[in-house]
Amino acid sequence: MSDTFVTRLDGPSPEQEIAGDMVRRALPVIPLVLAISFAVWGVNGALSSGYAIALVLVNFLFAAALLAWSARISLALLMGAALGGFLVRLALISVAILVVKDAAWVELVPLGITLIITHLGLLIWETRYVSASLAFPGLKPTTSVGPSPENKR
C-alpha cells in the first residue's frame, strides 16, 4: 500500500550522484584551465583559478549533501535547506573570497572569471548527460554508428 501523504524521500540521492559526476568531469579539465590561466596571468593567476575551481566543486558537493540530508528528513526541511543553503553557500563563497582578496597570490580577475566559467561550464556539461538520461527511451542517443540491421542488404 502506498503512502497517501509523502513527507520525506528515502533511497538514493540523485543530487549527490550529479555532484559526484560533476567533480569527476572537472578533474581532467582542471589542468587545462590552470594552464590557460597561467599563460594569461602567470603563477598568481593559476593559483587564483585553482582556488576558484575548488570553491565551485566544494559548493556543488555541499549543496548536494545538504539537499540529500534534508530530503531524508522531510520535504518541508528540503524547502528550508534549499533556501537557507543558498544563503549560507553564498555567504561562505563571499567570505572565502574576501578573506584571501588581499593575499599576494590572488588575482581577482582570473578568480572571478574562473568561478563563473567553471560553475556554468560544469552545469551545462552535466545537463547534456542528464537530458539524455531523462529522455524518452526512443529518443535516447545510441552508440551504434553503422547502418541499422533493416537497412543492410
Partner: peptide, 17 residues
C-alpha cells in the same frame, strides 16, 4: 530532484555573477 538540483545550480550562477 535531478531537475531541481540543476535548476538551483543554474539559478545560483546568477548570484555568483
Amino acid at each position: 530532484r535531478t531537475t531541481m538540483f540543476l535548476g538551483i545550480a543554474f539559478t545560483e550562477a546568477l548570484a555568483l555573477i
